[in-house]
């Protein structure tokens, strides 16, 4: 009978995605007496698989093949389905990466099962999985219970659980999976690395970030002035860079940069998970927003609710005065 939890550890170019290591803690909460097993997927990953075995995981398998160097749906699916057969888990847990969010519902649907996606908390109750997940862009939460099925599938949100420390020793078992070129319907031709450039957002002590709530590229002038008053770099959300209001190298979040400033000021930023995973290590968070329900207010130290067109110039003027500019 299926028991325990299998967690999916994604790698890219031989490096483990940190988000995948965050699955270990939540998996421990829902084992119901079973094991926590992990499958590490990638190319040239024997050593990193051994490292996973040192982080309170009971059993580690790894699938190592050149076709798995970076995520493609077909190749990863072959590897994960082989691991599911080998482990027979009651729950399969996927990381909140772009790949994990594909694979959870994809692999579940291939087994005629549903998937609990974007979960922030898991618990095991009355022989079933219950997940807490945000809805309405993080404005509310709800608990979803799996009612039936031999196996449950869930995708955790990134950044909600800590990464367990490695200690002692451990070993990983190779799992042989044949993946030929003919298995891959989608061919990865090239990888365009994230654009470099701009000020050093990652190392900055203060960052000033604008979101789509600003309404236009022109309104970013107010963000630039506030940033200048604080000698801080400007950051942006994905929506803003994708709309072409700001250059891509200013993007903060899952597919952009990660910042950990002492002071983060965000204006017109709603707080989509895509952005918050890249800024939740900030010490003091100042949020300026017209929507009192904006999810980013849950992360705020100071929140100001009102009209950005009035608040931003007023704040810039006060900061200039305070700094004697």
């Amino acid at each position: 009978m299926a028991s325990g939890v299998l967690i999916i550890i994604e790698t890219s170019a031989g490096q483990v995605r940190e988000t995948a290591l965050e699955l270990i803690g939540p998996a421990r909460e829902i084992t119901d007496g079973g094991q926590v097993a992990a499958v590490v997927i990638g190319s040239g990953i024997e050593t990193v698989a051994g490292d996973i075995a040192r982080r309170s995981v009971d059993r580690v398998l790894y699938v190592d093949a050149p076709a798995l160097e970076r995520y493609t749906t077909d190749a990863y699916t072959r590897a994960i389905e082989a691991a599911i057969s080998a482990v027979d888990p009651a729950v399969v847990l996927f990381p909140g990466t772009t790949a994990g969010r594909d694979l959870g519902p994809y692999i579940a649907a291939r087994a005629d099962a549903t998937c609990l996606s974007d979960c922030v908390k898991l618990r095991w109750e009355d022989n079933g999985l219950v997940a807490t997940r945000p809805v309405y862009q993080g404005k509310m939460l709800t608990d979803v219970r799996v009612q039936s099925g031999e196996r449950s599938y869930a995708v955790m949100r990134g950044g909600v659980a800590p990464v367990p420390q490695a200690s002692g020793s451990g070993s990983a078992e190779p799992l042989a999976v044949e993946i030929g070129d003919g298995d891959l319907r989608v061919k990865l031709k090239d990888v365009a690395e994230k654009p470099a450039g701009g000020a050093n957002l990652e190392g900055a002590e203060t960052v000033v970030v604008g979101g789509r709530g600003l309404g236009s590229a022109e309104a970013f002038g107010m963000i630039e002035e506030l940033a200048a008053a604080l000698d801080a770099p400007v950051g942006a959300t994905r929506a803003v860079t994708d709309l072409g209001w700001r250059p891509h190298y200013e993007q903060i979040g899952q597919t952009g940069k990660t910042v950990r400033p002492k002071l983060y000021i965000g204006a017109g930023v709603s707080g989509a998970v895509q952005h918050t995973v890249g800024m939740q290590g900030s010490e003091t968070v100042v949020v300026i927003n017209r929507d009192p329900d904006a999810p980013i207010l849950k992360l705020a130290t100071i929140g100001v609710i009102g009209d950005l067109n009035e608040l931003l110039p007023a704040l810039t003027a006060e900061i200039r005065a305070a700094r004697g500019q």
Partner: peptide, 27 residues
Amino acid sequence: QTEWGRLYSEQRTVQATIIQGDDAEAA
């Protein structure tokens, strides 16, 4: 296969100071 519960809002973990910004200068 799933049962969705009612909606609720998240309990805050950090205590925030929320300022109403109607008077921009005072805020």
